[in-house]
């Protein structure tokens, strides 16, 4: 049976870690979404150098391990663990978000842009008023997956002493010499974050599908 005294006796440590994980995830989520949209637009804008830059960014970032990006900021640029981890998480996730958003924009039929442009709207207006509203619906499910991954990947902070939930789990475990129960509670805390996120995305998806 699970020993709940581990949870109650170390609750303050669990909660500090939990709070830091939420903070780090939230910052990385917003920042990676903004960065991801920018990179996606770079990849599809009618300007070759921008396309090239966006493609290089995505292909390099998403094809190296998150751990190495984290080390780059922690060991290479000597940032503190929590900064290095959050920054790495942001950059890593943004490459996947950029791809999801790009795919969403491209899946809107070409005729929509043609109809909008032929009525005299500019490229920017057509994008904003006609294409993006349709792309959002398509992008919600893959974006939800990325956000769930982001929360779980935030455990990378533990490797660079980033004071997150996983880091505090390690601390408690090394103090009490108990492994199994300690990490079960860590997992439970992650679920508190990811399950509502997952359900929220599902709900949004259903609601948007209705308006079709």
């Amino acid at each position: 049976m699970l020993d709940f005294s581990i949870l109650t006796e170390n609750l303050d440590m669990y909660l500090v870690g939990f709070k830091n994980t939420i903070m780090s995830s939230l910052i990385a989520l917003v920042a990676s979404l903004i960065l991801g949209v920018l990179v996606a637009i770079m990849r599809i804008a009618p300007l070759k150098p921008l396309n090239w830059l966006g493609t290089a960014y995505v292909e390099i970032i998403r094809n190296i391990p998150l751990l190495i990006i984290t080390f780059f900021f922690f060991l290479g640029l000597k940032l503190s663990g929590i900064y290095a981890g959050t920054l790495a998480l942001t950059i890593y996730t943004s490459s996947f978000i950029a791809e999801a958003i790009r795919a969403g924009i491209l899946s809107v039929p070409k005729g929509q842009m043609e109809a909008a442009r032929s009525s005299g709207l500019t490229y920017g207006q057509a994008m904003r008023l006609v294409i993006l509203p349709q792309a959002v619906k398509i992008v919600i499910p893959p974006l939800g997956n990325q956000f769930i991954n982001l929360v779980k990947n935030s455990s990378i902070l533990a490797v660079v002493a980033g004071l997150d939930l996983m880091y505090h789990g390690d601390l408690i475990s090394s103090r009490t010499f108990i492994v199994f129960d300690v990490y079960i509670f860590v997992a439970a805390f992650y679920l508190i974050l990811t399950i509502p996120l997952s359900l929220g995305v599902g709900y949004l998806e259903k609601r948007l599908a209705k308006s079709n």
Partner: peptide, 8 residues
């Protein structure tokens, strides 16, 4: 040919 009305 395929109308291209804005579905949203």
């Amino acid at each position: 040919q395929h109308f291209h009305l804005y579905p949203h």
